[in-house]
Design a protein around this nucleic acid. Structure first.
Length: 522
RNA sequence: GCCCCCCUAGCUCAACUGGCAGAGCAUCUGACUCUUAAUCAGAGGGUUGAAGGUUCGAGUCCUUCGGGGGGCACCA
């Protein structure tokens, strides 16, 4: 073609594609396309494959052979055995991205994909005419194109749209990743997620599953009479969890603000306000480390049910998860790496103290034995509350062994400042955490609604903690809200990203977050 | 914040103990009307993440920096 292409270096791919844009314009088409009505989704087109039939001379229609059968069908032979006649199939209009291109002289085979699937396109020079053929010469991998054509089968039996009309929708100026290997580099996959979605097997499906899971969670809650609300994400005091917040600033008010680290305190204010079943499903922000299980912004669900308790929340948690699995067409047993997870409800329920004894051989009520064990694990015991020490042991020795799904119930009270104590057992808090393969998925309490106790526990919790710790900032307004009467309540928090990880067999949270936080590209 | 590993063509990857930077895909040119990771013939494409250093000679060794991954720490 033009000799400028060859000598162009690194931009030679783009130069070739811009050259094709010029040709498309010269042929009277818009390289950036326009509205395209009445197209069918490729998935729906594929579902109509049975409508492709073979019509013999007397007009009789024959069904095509089964191309999925074990014995491969020689379709060319089959046709000559049943001929003379011709294939007939429905007219379809489709659009998609060009994934593969196989030009063979005066024929071009394309594979195009939309978000419901892919299909092969047959473009024959004689069949489409000179003008369309010239347009087809301008097709590059990655372009978005459309076709009017007839659904049929090639000689090898592959379901194919035999093009009659060609449409150009959008040019890709950049070459796609390797057509076989796809995008492999993890950094590129995250930075250029749009490419990952197009060209890495299973990525789009995974994120569509995420959408379905989130919708299902809302459906489950709405069906039980919970109402979704939107609390503020900018907080004067970021409370409801122990995590460092992101700090920001409002100019006109000249006010330091914090991005929320939890949804809890505002939802509870709504309970005081008489909203008896509320939830929020939204983003929270924690200025902490990044790991395969932690992204600085992540999606949290918090649910509160007046006149419920942590046991009501266990049933609800099971319903949320079981329904979500159903929503993505999963079985109760889901793959997890080389293992599987059995999500058959009800999930196992074990007390903290039972599990502690089982895994360590030490009774958590036996102070001296606990201290001895802590020392043997090189856990600092000096000047720390015994429950805190116990919990470190629990996290180290017990949590990783929890295959689950398992509800760990009845935690030591002093590590749960927002939780009601078990009636008659003041050192046990009515709390559960749901663990699956060592990962904490959900956390629930019978919520504390005694304002005096809440204030006292806030203060105790605060003693000795640094200013950076958000719990160190008492939310007086929240305590004031409680002074106006919050019903006894069950509250639940679910890490949506982690739930999606489990249900989609993803080992990194960044595989289920479309745009995880990355440093700006160098 | 600490430790380990990675960064080579648009993409996926090679290059021995330091010795001429390569392949496949993609791109360009040519052939081909049922291909399917199409095939065949030819061509072009590189600041080896960046900057310094050691060396006759650095993709390779050393230092610093940038980006990423994993682990630790942090994290109800």
């Amino acid at each position: 073609m033009s000799e400028t292409l060859a000598e162009d270096s690194p931009g030679f791919h783009e130069a070739a594609r811009r050259n094709n844009i010029d040709k498309i314009v010269a042929l009277g088409h818009d390289p950036w396309g326009s509205r395209f009505d009445d197209r069918l989704l490729i998935g729906d087109v594929r579902a109509r494959s049975a409508e492709v039939q073979f019509q013999v001379e007397n007009g009789e229609l024959l069904p095509l052979p089964d191309f999925e059968a074990e014995e491969p069908v020689e379709y060319r032979q089959w046709k000559s055995d049943h001929g003379p006649g011709s294939e007939i199939g429905p007219k379809v209009r489709i659009a998609g991205r060009i994934m593969l291109k196989r030009p063979t002289g005066k024929l071009i085979f394309l594979n195009i994909e939309d978000w419901t699937g892919g299909i092969q396109i047959f473009i024959g020079k004689k069949q489409v005419g000179e003008a369309n053929w010239e347009l087809a010469q301008c097709f590059d991998l990655g372009d978005l194109v459309g076709f009017d054509g007839r659904l049929g089968r090639t000689n090898t039996g592959e379901l194919t749209v035999f093009a009659e009309g060609l449409h150009f929708h959008s040019k890709s100026l950049e070459p796609p990743p390797d057509k076989h290997a796809g995008l492999v580099d993890v950094e590129l996959r995250q930075r250029r997620r749009y490419l990952d979605l197009c060209y890495t097997e299973g990525v789009r499906e995974r994120f569509l599953k995420r959408t379905k899971i989130v919708a299902s969670v809302r459906n489950t809650l709405n069906a039980q009479g919970f109402c979704e609300i939107e609390g503020p994400t900018l907080h004067a005091i970021a409370g409801g969890a122990a995590a460092r917040p992101f700090v920001t600033h409002h100019n006109t008010l000249d006010l330091e603000l914090h991005m929320r680290i939890a949804l809890e305190l505002h939802l509870k204010r709504l309970l005081v306000g008489g909203m008896e079943r509320v939830y929020e499903l939204g983003r929270v922000y924690r200025n902490e480390g990044i790991s395969p299980k932690h992204n600085p912004e992540f999606t949290m669900l918090e649910v509160y049910q007046a006149y419920g308790d942590y046991r009501s929340m266990m049933d609800l948690t099971e319903a949320i998860i079981v329904n979500a699995i159903q929503a993505i067409g999963g079985e109760s047993k889901l793959p997890w790496g080389d293992l599987e997870i059995d999500f058959t409800a009800p999930f196992e329920r074990r007390t903290y103290s039972e599990l502690f004894t089982e895994q360590t051989g030490v009774d958590p009520e036996d102070e001296s034995a606990v201290i001895e064990l802590a020392k043997s694990l090189q856990i600092d015991v000096e000047g720390r509350h015994l429950d805190v020490v116990k919990n470190e042991i629990f996290e180290e020795k017990v949590e990783d062994s929890l295959v689950g799904p398992i509800f760990v119930i009845d935690y030591p009270a002093s590590i749960c400042p927002l939780t009601k104590r078990k009636a008659g057992v003041p050192h046990i808090a009515e709390r559960f955490e749901l663990f699956v393969h060592g990962m904490e998925i959900a956390n629930a309490y019978t919520e504390l609604n005694d304002p005096d106790l809440q204030e006292k526990l806030f203060k105790t919790q605060l003693a000795g903690l640094s200013d950076e710790d958000s719990m160190a900032k008492m939310d007086h307004d929240f305590v004031r809200a409680l002074r106006n009467g919050m019903p006894p309540t069950g509250g639940l928090g679910v890490g949506i990203d982690r739930l999606v990880m489990l249900l989609t067999n993803s080992t990194s949270i960044r595989d289920v977050i479309l745009f995880p936080l990355l440093r700006p590209e160098a």
